[in-house]
Computed example of a mutant assay.
Amino acid sequence: MSGEFGEFHDELRTVARELLGKDGDTEPVGWPGLAGAGWTGLEVAAGYDGAGATFTEVAILLEEVGRAAARTAYPSVAAAGIGALTLLDSDTRRDGLLRATVAGTALPIAVLEGNMVPAAGGETACAGTGGIVPGFRLTQTSEGFELSGSADFVPDAPAATILLIPALDPSGAIRVVVVEPDTAGLRITARPVVDATRALGRVDADAVPLVPESVRPFRSDIDRGLRILFDRAALAVACDSVGIAAAMLDATVEYARVRTQFDRPIGSFQAVKHACADMLVELTIARRLLAEALAVASDASPESSRAVAIAKAYAGEAGVRIAGKAMQLHGGIGYTWESGIHRYLKRATLNRALFGSPADLRREIARDYLRP
């Protein structure tokens, strides 16, 4: 993620660490502060008050969020929320939502199920979705549509000011329902998980009446729009896992320098050196796979989705292994609440499962290679 913009990326990373470092472990990162720093508009076009950057720049911020184990809805908004809005045709409401998101007054959440995985049938499972099947259905009525269905473990659903719900219409096409969370018949239930740095929720819709203007198709030039959103969400989680792994490696190396046993720093012992070297190798591979996924156009093509699946599967496992090794190398203090390592291990464990476990993603990769 360096290349010709390496200097800018380094500066972006430094500013992000400073901003995230101002918040404590127990409080969410201030949303107005992120908006004021330009995070919410980084990938949004200049015509909508954004910076017109790419997802590569957003990925740097997502990695820093993971490095800080920060409590923020930014990954959900940047990856899937803004991603969903930009896949819709321009109109007054959509453009207003984009500008409000950049300004920090709107928090759009795309309702993507955290345990969603590509269906075994691939493209045939649901035409035009890249194998991703939404949990919501639209029914035609005399006045418009009704929305029914559910999605569980939706990241940051409880914090949403606007929901973007992918749903199948009666013709079998994917539409995006733009609706307020307090709409009658719509219910959001918090879903506590072991990772206290995250907020997940279940979204249920029971025959929610919708005006036709609330039901939007993807842009005509977009194919497999739902798969694009899934891949962006999975890539954001992979970035978070890489950030976790980097933080745990740095913390472990620093601890090995200052912790002594038998009048020597423990970092001088061969077993500790080898363990830290293994952590570095895994982190380096995860970074390379992530960079390759970011370098491919996010168009839900087989090549793009395969690169995302490989990066997400490897980074998810590497994050858990490196955080677990960090806890072990910190010795007894690593298992205490005060060390804070438990936050990273729990977060890495949730990352491994969100938007496709390594086993699920590897099955999809294998199916892709076995197709004639």
Score class of each variant (00 low, 15 high):
residue 211 V to E: 15
residue 102 V to M: 10
residue 226 L to R: 00
residue 128 G to K: 02
residue 146 E to D: 12
residue 234 A to G: 09
residue 289 L to M: 13
residue 32 P to F: 04
residue 360 D to N: 14
residue 198 R to M: 14
residue 132 I to D: 03
residue 4 E to H: 11
residue 253 V to G: 07
residue 144 G to C: 05
residue 243 G to Q: 04
residue 306 R to Q: 13
residue 303 E to K: 14
residue 120 A to V: 10
residue 74 Y to R: 02
residue 77 V to T: 08
residue 7 E to I: 13
residue 125 A to K: 05
residue 342 H to L: 10
residue 82 I to A: 10
residue 304 S to Q: 05
residue 154 V to H: 02
residue 332 G to R: 10
residue 278 D to E: 13
residue 196 A to I: 11
residue 371 R to A: 15
residue 66 G to S: 08
residue 291 A to Y: 00
residue 190 A to N: 08
residue 37 A to P: 01
residue 206 D to T: 13
residue 12 L to C: 07
residue 250 D to W: 02
residue 27 E to T: 10
residue 46 A to G: 03
residue 10 D to L: 13
residue 139 T to P: 00
residue 157 A to W: 00
residue 298 S to H: 12
residue 121 G to H: 09
residue 304 S to L: 01
residue 187 R to C: 11
residue 286 A to K: 02
residue 208 V to S: 13
residue 70 A to W: 03
residue 295 A to L: 10
residue 352 R to L: 09
residue 285 I to S: 06
residue 146 E to N: 11
residue 258 V to D: 12
residue 95 D to M: 04
residue 191 R to Y: 04
residue 346 K to E: 15
residue 287 R to Q: 15
residue 354 L to N: 01
residue 92 T to K: 13
residue 201 G to H: 03
residue 35 A to P: 00
residue 292 E to M: 13
residue 175 R to H: 11
residue 89 D to G: 15
residue 172 G to W: 03
residue 136 F to Q: 04
residue 74 Y to C: 07
residue 239 C to M: 06
residue 314 Y to C: 03
residue 235 L to C: 06
residue 64 E to T: 03
residue 30 G to Y: 05
residue 220 S to T: 11
residue 343 R to Y: 10
residue 14 T to R: 15
residue 85 L to R: 04
residue 230 F to T: 00
residue 113 E to F: 03
residue 254 E to A: 15
residue 91 D to K: 03
residue 93 R to H: 12
residue 327 M to K: 14
residue 283 L to M: 06
residue 132 I to T: 00
residue 55 F to I: 08
residue 108 P to I: 12
residue 226 L to M: 10
residue 354 L to K: 00
residue 64 E to S: 09
residue 7 E to L: 13
residue 205 A to T: 02
residue 210 L to K: 08
residue 215 V to K: 08
residue 158 P to S: 10
residue 137 R to Q: 11
residue 35 A to T: 04
residue 218 F to T: 07
residue 301 S to N: 07
residue 62 L to K: 02
residue 140 Q to K: 14
residue 114 G to C: 08
residue 86 T to G: 12
residue 180 E to Y: 05
residue 252 T to N: 13
residue 272 V to A: 09
residue 189 T to A: 11
residue 203 V to Y: 02
residue 361 L to E: 06
residue 14 T to E: 15
residue 41 G to A: 07
residue 51 A to E: 13
residue 181 P to R: 05
residue 102 V to F: 09
residue 287 R to K: 11
residue 44 V to Y: 05
residue 26 T to A: 15
residue 15 V to N: 07
residue 144 G to I: 01
residue 292 E to T: 12
residue 45 A to P: 00
residue 44 V to C: 07
residue 146 E to Q: 14
residue 297 A to T: 11
residue 330 H to S: 12
residue 144 G to F: 02
residue 254 E to D: 14
residue 234 A to N: 03
residue 229 L to I: 02
residue 162 I to H: 05
residue 176 V to Y: 07
residue 204 D to G: 07
residue 56 T to R: 13
residue 288 R to C: 11
residue 101 T to M: 05
residue 226 L to W: 01
residue 94 R to L: 10
residue 128 G to D: 09
residue 133 V to Q: 06
residue 309 A to R: 14
residue 37 A to R: 03
residue 257 R to M: 13
residue 101 T to Y: 04
residue 301 S to P: 04
residue 266 I to V: 15
residue 14 T to W: 10
residue 267 G to E: 07
residue 154 V to C: 09
residue 187 R to W: 01
